[in-house]
Nucleic acid binder design. Structure first.
Lengths: 225, 225
DNA sequence: GTCTATATAATGATAGAC
DNA sequence: GTCTATCATTATATAGAC
């Protein structure tokens, strides 16, 4: 399953353009767009800084190319592997096996967090596929009915992304040497427990809020910032 | 309850130092530390850029002062309002009423995401208090037992923070004009539904994973990145 | 295509007047 | 305490040689 994408980085009789793009994806994913500078990208790609500009025009255009490329890689994965139904499942699989597509998934999470040019497309893709999965699950009885499947889809995507990018400060709650992936592993079981049995032992909170919503005026579309 | 902190910004017979600090908190919270530059802070505070340095020494020291201040404001709130048991509850309350402490809570979320100097203290405070709340809830029967209360605490903090900082790209899944707070409101009910009834209608996934964990070697502390 | 050298811009920080 | 003017550094981007 490794042949889909040529991301065995640093290995390269790759074209310089590809080396630059791969280096950029790696650094954007780990350090973010702002913090990453062209010289560092060039260094990791083994070329000069100006060659980056020569090939991509600007840092911003380089980002857009990276967005396109990662989106394509993740979607290609979806198409090639019949066990994966969509990009949301890419994330689920990633949580199960963080070694594959590590970089691409992290890149996507960062792209959404930083609102990169293609962020909306990443997000739309995931939310729509998540919503489809949830609606199907609700229909076939494997998932509980929801008052708002769309919002539920956003919620599941949001929490998946959060788990992919657990901040260091939070991971340290498990101990000084616990990294992001190790923290993910530790969190996986409680997540599943909540998704299976919930957290609250009774309906007090839920009924309180739903009663409150029934009483109040429908207010869903308003914005108050 | 408004008198605790003087954050009615721009209103000011405040000292210049305070105006600068408040402006910095606002910009760090919304744009992040890296993206924010001293001139913009100075402009919003109505002073010159060099005055910022004069009072705080450096941008990094300014950040530390802001960290301290926000931490103090949030903890003071905890102490002053008996209905709030801890910083984690500040977040819960915020989700209910985003107008108060909006900035401080957002600042904290960003500080953790960006791993600011005080991020660990923000995170520790929230996780510890969350864990205490969860353990108490489990003891008194209002919450379901957990295989790992500590990890559950981290999970609840993680998801709370994620909801506080819903990326634009995800909020747009609700429509082009839905802002962060409006998206939060829409997500609140599905969250509560999951916390009450779970998502999965049966135990298939959970038992599969727990069986797997029983079979496998205890592996909790390992890191694999 | 790729490099070196350099222009240009932004930003954090300093010096010194008032 | 506060400002203006300026420096030093860093980063993106350009020009032109090879």
């Amino acid at each position: 399953m490794r042949s889909v994408h040529p991301d065995d980085r640093a290995d390269a009789d790759l074209t310089a353009q590809a080396k630059i793009r791969n280096a950029a994806i790696a650094q954007f994913a780990t350090d973010g767009f702002q913090k990453t500078n062209l010289r560092a990208i060039a260094a990791e790609a083994g070329v000069s800084a100006s060659l980056v500009i020569h090939h991509f025009g600007s840092k911003e255009k380089l980002r857009m190319i990276c967005d396109e490329y990662v989106l394509e890689v993740l979607l290609a994965r979806t198409r090639s592997d019949s066990s994966v139904t969509g990009m949301r499942d890419v994330v689920s699989e990633y949580l199960a096996d963080p070694t594959e597509y590590h970089l691409e998934v992290q890149y996507m999470a960062r792209a959404i967090a930083e609102d990169s040019p293609a962020a909306a497309r990443f997000a739309d893709s995931m939310v729509n596929e998540s919503e489809a999965i949830l609606r199907a699950g609700i229909l076939d009885g494997s998932m509980r009915p929801s008052s708002d499947p769309r919002a539920l889809a956003v919620l599941t995507v949001l929490t998946s992304l959060a788990m992919l990018t657990i901040p260091r400060a939070l991971a340290r709650a498990f101990g000084p040497d616990i990294s992001g992936p190790a923290a993910m592993k530790r969190i996986a079981l409680p997540t599943l427990e909540i998704y299976t049995h919930g957290l609250y032992a009774n309906d007090t909170f839920l009924t309180a809020v739903t009663d409150l919503l029934v009483t109040a005026q429908p207010d869903q579309g308003s914005n108050d910032d």
